[in-house]
Nucleic acid binder design. Structure first.
Lengths: 337, 337
DNA sequence: CTGAAAGCGCTTACAG
DNA sequence: CTGAAAGCGCTTACAG
């Protein structure tokens, strides 16, 4: 139930018209300062609350943004997207907007249903947070609304996207390992599993190339099967001096493996991760890793969708958000012969 | 920007009135089945989307619920409330409602500002998720809107609340320790910090009482200061055989402490936690703990707020949601002399 | 500086 | 079974 005090009530109380009240409360021209003051005071005394639905119906904006997260990314230990959503909500607030969370169920994704936020005209734009299936991408394209992919992209759909610079982050952290004297560096991750694992691998690869190091198949270690289920990591017979892991959780798994085999990090080998999530601080010693800048991702996403709303024809394309290396204690400088 | 197709457009196309279109699309009486069908078909062909703002302005409902989480509970390793929010969003969906996330900043909490969802009439009710300061509770009481405290309560404010049965959960898990032969059982937590830590302590206390065990001050170990900042846990000189920790993260901290001092869990002492969050699986061995039923909390909360909306005078009071002991490997049966 | 009129898109209550 | 009229609370464009 809403407060039943309207601008008309305030107007009646003061013997003015509701037009004047509207102007005063919105601080528009055409009302004397003294009247404005009086109106504001009375409004506050009466406990007046603005009716945003009435405004919406007039100007056609809901002042809401839908944030759609596919259900499968919302598992029990998987709060990354929720955290991104939270940052989005905070940044939307600065534009006078609100965020409505829409978990995309597997059924809706399969049946290509529009989200309810769309069919009920609840939002002025939609941010899709987390990779959706190809068929559903088409459904999204059919939505007549500003939209944005966050943390993934599709090369065929012409939809703006914001992604972490996986390539550059992995490139930089591999450079760092090489600077620290490492020459035998393994990459841990199934590069056929997701595009971000693949992009991170390519960054690692580029770093090797640039430093005249040759990549060897045996230094590519599988961390999960095609379905994304983690498998035991098999250490190579001849151990490398450093491991680039595609994410912190995998680095954490690798630590367990190394410890079980009697290796000590960083003395016997160095390990780096990616994401700077909770796992990065749970290893002993804590992990040097690439931090995904969640706040920056959210800020960029909100700005991009706001621009689409105000200028429907302007496109931002694919925006990369740089990560940042967090230096901790899992890397040791080694000497080369 | 909204789709600019309205009921009027559909009506014009079919040569009927917009009243008839409204009735047909809402499946109300007074329109023949055949006309309804025709109208639905044309609506879908034209890509009609319902304008919820227009409905809102008529019936006074926004069909949104605000979920307010104090900023301080949204730290980097703290996704419990976000997960609850996610479940709330899913359950709201079943009522045709949406959830709007509102992070309560420390400034707004100090300055006793109403949340924007309230002052802009964006929601039909507010769920406050996580303990807010006493002064702000008064602010919340002044909001003329259905409201609900989730995961905390205040004995003085007459506001419905849903909380985990902290008391009973701690009581049960302490009973379990006693069944396993433990007689010297410590409680880890600052009982002046939050009401849930206090309630869990009382459940522990009741279990001791019922079994004729005497509580000793020295067995109450502080885990954090008044502001909630974790402190080093000081182990008592004479070690107990078991520890009841007020939450899993503290149990995790205790593990580190015990390991540092050379104690092994569960051989040297047993440890139990509360929450069954990520920390419960990160200790070695994993933790026996009380699982907070997030889905049930969310379901109950949504039901309660919906009831308040439909019958403003009905109150649900303080509802307890039962937890569930998850048995793992951090407790050992011991023999008594 | 102030306000009467019209309209946003829908629904409700009533008349036919 | 169908629709003209009125109204929800606000804002815009215009007249004074």
């Amino acid at each position: 139930m809403r407060s039943n005090i309207t601008m008309k009530d305030i107007a009646d109380k003061l013997g003015v018209s509701s037009v004047t009240v509207s102007k005063a409360l919105n601080n528009k021209e055409g009302v004397s300062e003294s009247l404005k003051q009086k109106i504001r005071t009375v409004a506050s005394e009466m406990g007046y609350r603005f009716n945003s639905a009435a405004k919406s119906i007039k100007d056609g904006y809901s002042y809401n943004i839908g944030v759609m997260i596919p259900q499968r990314f919302t598992g029990i230990n998987d709060s990354f997207y929720l955290r991104v959503y939270q940052q989005i909500a905070i940044h939307l607030d600065r534009y006078g907007y609100f965020g409505i969370l829409n978990i995309l169920s597997s059924e809706d994704e399969e049946q290509l249903n529009f989200p309810r936020v769309y069919s009920e005209n609840k939002v002025d734009g939609i941010i899709i947070l987390g990779q959706i299936g190809k068929p559903y991408i088409e459904t999204v394209q059919n939505m007549a609304l500003p939209k944005l992919f966050l943390d993934f992209y599709d090369e065929h759909a012409n939809i703006d996207s914001i992604v972490t610079d996986n390539f550059y982050g992995a490139y930089e952290i591999t450079n760092y390992l090489i600077q620290m004297g490492h020459r035998e560096i393994a990459y841990v991750g199934n590069i056929y599993s997701t595009s971000s694992i693949q992009d991170r691998f390519l960054g690692y690869y580029k770093s090797l190339l640039e430093h005249g190091l040759t990549f060897e198949e045996r230094l590519l270690l599988k961390d999960r099967d095609q379905k994304g289920v983690y498998v035991d990591i098999e250490l190579p017979d001849k151990m490398p001096t450093a491991f680039v892991c595609n994410c912190d959780q995998v680095a954490y798994n690798l630590f367990e493996r190394l410890t079980a085999q009697g290796y000590k990090v960083p003395n016997d080998c160095s390990v780096v991760g990616f994401d700077n999530d909770i796992y990065a601080t749970l290893t002993n010693p804590p992990l040097t890793t690439v931090e995904v800048d969640i706040a920056q991702m959210a800020r960029t996403a909100v700005k991009a969708i706001m621009e689409q709303i105000s200028s429907p024809n302007r496109r931002s394309g694919r925006v990369l958000v740089q990560g940042k290396i967090i230096y901790r204690d899992s890397v040791k400088r080694i000497e080369n012969n």
